[in-house]
């Protein structure tokens, strides 16, 4: 447990020292979301309808931005080797890194989403569901993304390849996440979607660190 906390603290400290990276992903999210009304037109009814999808797709893309830097700096300066050789299981340390990644990229999206939702004229109930869906969904994105980040570590054209590998795997998160908000708006209730999203998260918490660890070991061989 101490090792996890140490890793999280270290990664957060590093994120504080290079704030620009975190902020870039955040502003990317804001800008992408704000571009859609410009491209589609300012009809409130239409915007309200497409808001969940747009916010979620933007969240997927914003999470992708930070992913290629999840393990790459540690790989470049040898920290990853030391993590593999640490007396704590690598799976735990990797989980710590994923948590830190979520705190720096996922959590800000959750907090920011309602503000952007207002641009699309979502009511307060829908905004609440959006936040809950993102709160469950963004850790899922970090977990799945970590597998891709580990697989493409030190690989030619890693960044683009990463999105090719990870985005198809994000489809269920997108469907249930955006679906929750839509279901709420159409009066069906978001419970089913949110529970499925939570089930996916539970599955990912179980499998993703394992797959990421295996991929990291391969990358270091």
């Amino acid at each position: 447990m101490n090792a996890i906390l140490a890793i999280i603290r270290r990664d957060l400290l590093l994120a504080m020292r290079r704030k620009s990276e975190v902020l870039t992903a955040l502003f990317f999210f804001i800008i992408v979301v704000s571009l859609f009304p410009l491209g589609i037109g300012p009809e409130t009814a239409l915007l309200r309808k497409i808001a969940p999808g747009i916010l979620w797709v933007a969240a997927l893309l914003a999470t992708m931005l930070g992913l290629s830097r999840l393990f790459a700096p540690d790989h470049a300066d040898g920290t990853l080797e030391q993590m593999v050789l640490a007396p704590s299981p690598l799976g735990l340390l990797v989980t710590g890194k994923i948590i830190a990644h979520w705190i720096t990229t996922g959590l800000p999206l959750v907090l920011l989403a309602p503000v952007l939702g207002i641009q699309f004229d979502l009511d307060s109930g829908a905004l609440g569901v959006l936040m809950i869906a993102l709160l469950i969904g963004t850790p899922l994105l970090s977990l799945i993304g970590a597998i891709g980040a580990a697989l493409t570590l030190g690989v030619r054209g890693g960044g683009v390849l990463l999105s090719l590998l990870v985005l198809p795997l994000y489809v269920p998160a997108l469907i249930f996440g955006a679906g929750a908000v839509e279901a709420h708006i159409s009066g069906l209730g978001a419970g089913g979607h949110l529970s499925l999203l939570a089930a996916l998260l539970a599955l990912a918490v179980f499998f993703a660190p394992w797959a990421t660890t295996a991929a990291l070991r391969i990358a270091l061989e």
């Binding site: 597998i147 697989l151 590998l165 198809p168 795997l169 489809v171 269920p172 469907i175 249930f176 679906g179 499925l196 996916l200 599955l203 499998f207 797959a211 295996a214 991929a215 391969i218 990358a219």
Partner: peptide, 23 residues
């Protein structure tokens, strides 16, 4: 690396199929 991706994919294929059907 491909093997891990294929295994992750094969776990995901039914989930994706189910989610798309739901959608």
């Amino acid at each position: 690396a491909g093997a891990i991706l294929a295994l992750v994919g094969v776990v995901n294929v039914p989930i994706i199929y189910f989610s798309v059907k739901w959608w």
